[in-house]
Design a protein around this nucleic acid. Structure first.
Length: 980
RNA sequence: GGGCGAUUAGCUCAGUUGGUUAGAGCGCAUGCAUGACACGCAUGAGGUCACAGGUUCGAAUCCUGUAUCGCCCACCA
């Protein structure tokens, strides 16, 4: 064929047009049809503010490999794409931008305006990361792209919230949140970073009530929190304090009389003085202690981080007040000063400790007691039983349920609770996690059954669909002391649910789609507002909508009830086949999807979970912006091409939890890169050139199919055998998520077997225009392009389009299946012999440049070997560039011959020897063999031991020993001839 | 503190239930402009499998311990 291709593959000119061809062909778009073989997965939706990083790239590569593989196999294949609104992260980014440009805070703009601006921002930048995913070749069904805040997802969120509210799985509770006093918002745990701060540990003397001059000494790094102490705790078994059990101390500065309590969980008697101050409202451990002992919780903070009216009192006849002072700074100073004056400071030590800081405002966070919404994770049983895992949430531990235990899943089955339902799905194998060890993290985390705080004090997100009104003052209802009680529930036409908790009535509205006529929803809201109800200002934790992602993107709660194709997605593609993600969100996300899938829709969201490794830099550090050690996949696409990026990432995707990627700065561009990507680029280039060679040497009308009778030549039988082994390996490695094995199988077949050996062997026939070789070449090329396509889609599609008689696209071509009849072990062992003889000759030629072109004498071990070699002269001779002068059992060694001793044959090239080179080499080999043979003999000589070893293994050892001995004898002979 | 993982060639990693002389790519060394490819071809040199014990006829592989590194979770008043 007359073909005009550049000698180097240029991904930049190929990738874009190819991608557009795929889009135009609608190959990515999945529509439910009659097929029962299906493959589906949902993308872990990237953050809308995000940019592609290597984590996305490796995960995208993995998902795309599977998606393309299944599509080619003929499965109805859906890869559902989308973006996450990412609550706080997005709001913070936009707020920051607005502040930088306009010097306005969100309070200046107001809620509506800020949300409008974030949407505007989303419209402008939201598609960036999806475009970047497309640039690495991701074959997502872009027509179905979802956003966690779009109407379809919002409907699912409100539906799920309503259902849980109605079932008593959502409740109001107090909880310590991480309070960012600067932004005046609660901050999620994972948005906190810790910084080591040099602080001091102060020991304070608390006078014992009714025992003059006796003090309990407590140590603290947060002296200002003492204003909120409601107890001091000692260990119940600590003999030093037994006499104080049941006694009280007087809280300095405040004058409050607080009890000495015994608590074995909080107090470590060996630490410090063995006495701990207890501040339930400002410390998580103390909070849990407070719940255990029914202690008063005194909040000292105003939302902007100052001391509130609780921060005052009277001690020893003197009034003290800290109201209005900044809590952790001014108030602390003042408290310490006053204690000093009173002589109540026993000791001050420098103490380094970790202080949580808000990632957004970079200011220290404060534990802050506030009302929040929770999803109940634990088993629903009578509250007389203590909650599992000692969860400290008020609402949880006091939750009562009078009628029945457990919850009902959407399939009608019962489960003890949400967490347990999700645990069972993994323990009984409905969800399989790969690598298996991660199942343990999943189960451990869920096993704690900690209630999930789902409210966030933000404006960007799904607003909580609850309106509330106080029906009794908290005093009247006794809410402060009595456990929160679930009083009442009713629904009205299944769209309104009401709960009363702590004297407040909460009205939850279902999604507006449930209301009829359409304006009934707005009408209901208007009525609620008129009656004095206000909508909860908070929004839901981002993970709430993420937890619904597999069902919401497929249209839940619509479930095949209408004829519309989109309503058929859920029954057709759910449960999805696979979820591929990073281990860090196994709990936050994966566990919650399983819960919600079971609870809302009655089935697990995916059958398989694959956890990919995390890419680190060459020193084993995580890639971080602050370290400047990150590699940007977009840069790699520009420098090496998307296929090179994908191939390299696949080849690094082993089952370990971390993979290291040495990072270097590119001298020309100043951009971070890694020599690892050269591997992919070089391979792409190899594919390009081999294809170029094949295409320029086949007839335009050449058919790729092979007819049985044509395949007679050894090398032809061999390459087809290798090809079919490779097909098998490709199926196996993809199905077991072994992507590094996949890449290696592809590389070694294409590069070593096909290019280095087959093409070289076949060159003479190729030049001669042999049509059998042409059809085999085409067959191999066509098949390997298919095998390679899932990993390297662009270059393979491009070459595919150059094949003769090619009209359809590779992306939808049928994936190769193994033809077991082509596996030919005889051909494989014969070619292996040819390869080792050829290499041996080349080795001699390398050792003795003078040997080049000189005749070779071969002395085979037996007639069998002799015959194989004899038949393969025409292969060996051109490959090694020699003439085989003799090949016989009785061959005599030429004068001054250089020697290569193989197990099957001795290779001689005469007239070139240099004793100084030859002797040490032979001696070294002799010593090696002597050692090996001796140990082998010893092994076989131990008769008592041999009796226990399987006969086949023993026979293997004997054969091995024979080989050693034969080779050793040959070496000895050669040494003798050299006069050693 | 709890859990998980890693430690194999200079580097990055394979090594599937214990059983031929532990492999690959990169890098290195030597040679090569050979009608596909120098992003290439050929050849070679590199390993006490972290350390110490144990089980076994036999251990990179199983067990125990130690060291170093990393991750996740919980946190030291």
């Amino acid at each position: 064929m007359n073909i005009d291709l550049p000698t180097q593959y240029n991904p930049q000119s190929v990738e874009k047009p190819i991608y557009e061809k795929w889009l135009a062909s609608k190959a990515f778009h999945a529509v439910p049809d009659a097929r029962t073989n299906r493959f589906s997965c949902v993308i872990p939706p990237p953050n809308v503010t995000g940019a592609l990083h290597l984590g996305h790239a490796i995960n995208g590569t993995i998902q795309d490999i599977l998606t393309r593989y299944h599509r080619m196999k003929g499965d109805n294949t859906l890869w559902m794409p989308g973006i996450d609104h990412a609550g706080i992260a997005t709001q913070a980014v936009v707020e920051k931008t607005i502040f930088e440009k306009e010097k306005k805070s969100r309070h200046d703009l107001g809620r509506e305006e800020l949300v409008r601006r974030i949407w505007e921002w989303k419209e402008q930048f939201g598609a960036r990361i999806l475009n970047q995913l497309a640039s690495i070749g991701s074959s997502c069904d872009w027509d179905r792209t979802r956003f966690t805040l779009d109407d379809i997802c919002a409907r699912a969120v409100r539906e799920a919230f309503f259902k849980m509210f109605k079932d008593g799985l959502i409740f109001r509770g107090k909880r310590l949140v991480n309070w960012d006093a600067q932004l005046q918002t609660a901050v999620a745990d994972d948005e906190i970073y810790h910084e080591t701060v040099k602080g001091q540990m102060t020991s304070i003397k608390y006078p014992v009530d009714g025992s003059p001059d006796e003090y309990l000494i407590v140590a603290t790094t947060r002296p200002e929190t003492m204003l909120g102490d409601t107890a001091v705790a000692v260990h119940p078994d600590d003999p030093r304090y037994t006499h104080l059990h049941g006694k009280f101390v007087i809280l300095p500065l405040v004058g409050r009389r607080i009890p000495v309590i015994c608590d074995g969980l909080l107090v470590d008697p060996k630490f410090g003085t063995g006495v701990v101050k207890v501040t339930p409202a400002h410390d998580p451990n103390d909070y849990a202690t407070g719940v255990r002992h029914n202690l008063e919780q005194i909040n000292l903070l105003t939302p902007d981080g100052k001391v509130n009216e609780n921060g005052q009192g009277e001690f020893l006849g003197q009034k003290y007040s800290y109201v209005g002072l900044k809590f952790a700074t001014a108030a602390r100073k003042q408290v310490l000063g006053d204690l000093e004056t009173l002589g109540l400071i026993a000791e001050t030590k420098v103490h380094e400790h970790e202080v949580g800081h808000s990632d957004r405002s970079k200011t220290p966070i404060e534990p802050y007691l506030s009302d929040q919404w929770f999803v109940r994770m634990g088993d629903l049983v009578d509250a007389a039983e203590p909650p599992k895992g000692g969860t400290p949430n008020v609402g949880s531990s006091a939750f009562r349920r009078s009628s029945e235990e457990g919850i009902t899943l959407a399939n009608g089955k019962r489960a003890p609770g949400l967490a347990q339902a999700a645990m069972d799905a993994v323990t009984d194998g409905r969800v399989k996690i790969t690598p298996e060890r991660y199942a343990k993290s999943y189960l451990d985390w869920l096993g704690q059954k900690r209630d999930w705080c789902i409210s966030r004090q933000l404006w960007w997100g799904h607003r909580i669909p609850v309106w509330s009104r106080e029906v009794l003052s908290s005093k009247e209802s006794g809410a402060d002391s009595a456990p929160v009680k679930w009083e009442q529930e009713f629904h009205w036409k299944n769209k309104i649910a009401v709960q009363r908790m702590g004297g407040v009535e909460y009205v939850c509205l279902a999604d507006s789609a449930r209301f009829d006529p359409p304006n009934e929803y707005a009408e209901t809201v208007r009525k609620l507002v008129h009656d004095g109800y206000t909508q909860d200002p908070d929004v839901l934790d981002t993970w709430f909508s993420s937890a619904l992602w597999p069902i919401s993107t497929m249209g839940w709660p619509a479930n095949g009830t209408s004829e519309k194709a989109d309503d058929q997605l859920l029954p057709y593609f759910y449960p999805t086949s696979l979820l591929s993600t990073a281990r860090e969100i196994l709990t936050l996300w994966v566990a919650r999807m399983v819960m919600f899938g079971l609870y809302c829709h009655g089935d697990v969201p995916f059958k398989d979970v694959y956890i990919h490794a995390v890419i680190q830099d060459g020193e084993g550090r995580p890639m971080k912006k602050s370290l400047g050690n990150g590699v940007d996949p977009v840069d790699i696409v520009a420098s090496h091409g998307a296929d090179a990026l994908r191939f390299t990432l696949a080849s690094m995707a082993t089952e370990t939890q971390d993979i290291r990627m040495p990072v270097v700065k590119d001298q020309k561009t100043g951009v971070n890169t890694s020599p690892k990507f050269d591997l992919g680029r070089n391979f792409a280039n190899k594919i390009w050139n081999a294809s170029r060679y094949v295409l320029s040497n086949v007839d335009e009308k050449q058919e790729a199919g092979i007819k049985n009778q044509e395949v007679t030549a050894l090398e032809d039988r061999w390459i087809l055998s290798r090809l079919n082994s490779t097909i098998q390996a490709v199926h196996d490695s993809i199905n077991h998520y072994r992507f590094a094995d996949l890449a290696e199988a592809l590389r070694s077949f294409f590069w070593t077997d096909l290019c280095d050996w087959y093409l070289e062997i076949a060159k003479a026939r190729i030049k001669a225009g042999d049509s059998v070789v042409q059809s085999i070449l085409l067959h191999c090329l066509e098949t390997t392009l298919k095998l390679l396509h899932p990993v390297m889609p662009f270059i393979t599609e491009e070459i595919w389009s150059k094949l003769p008689n090619r009209e359809s696209m590779l992306i939808t071509a049928a994936f190769p299946v193994v033809d077991a009849g082509r596996i030919d072990t005889a051909a494989e062992s014969q070619i292996a012999l040819i390869q080792s003889v050829t290499s041996a000759i080349r080795e001699i030629q390398n050792r003795y440049p003078a040997a080049k072109g000189k005749d070779v004498v071969l002395q085979p071990r037996d007639a069998n070997v002799q015959g194989t070699i004899e038949k393969s002269r025409s292969i060996i001779e051109p490959l090694a560039g020699v003439r085989i002068a003799e090949n016989s059992l009785g061959a005599t060694k030429p004068e001054n011959a250089a020697t290569a001793v193989l197990p099957e044959v001795q290779v001689y090239i005469g007239g070139v020897i240099d004793k100084a080179v030859e002797m040490p080499k032979l001696q070294k080999r002799r010593d090696e063999l002597t050692k090996l043979a001796t140990s082998q003999r010893n092994k076989l000589g131990n008769e008592a031991a041999i009796a226990k070893v399987p006969a086949a293994v023993v026979q293997g050892w004997r054969d091995q020993l024979t080989k050693y001995e034969e080779e050793l004898a040959a070496i000895e002979k050669n040494l003798q001839e050299l006069g050693a």
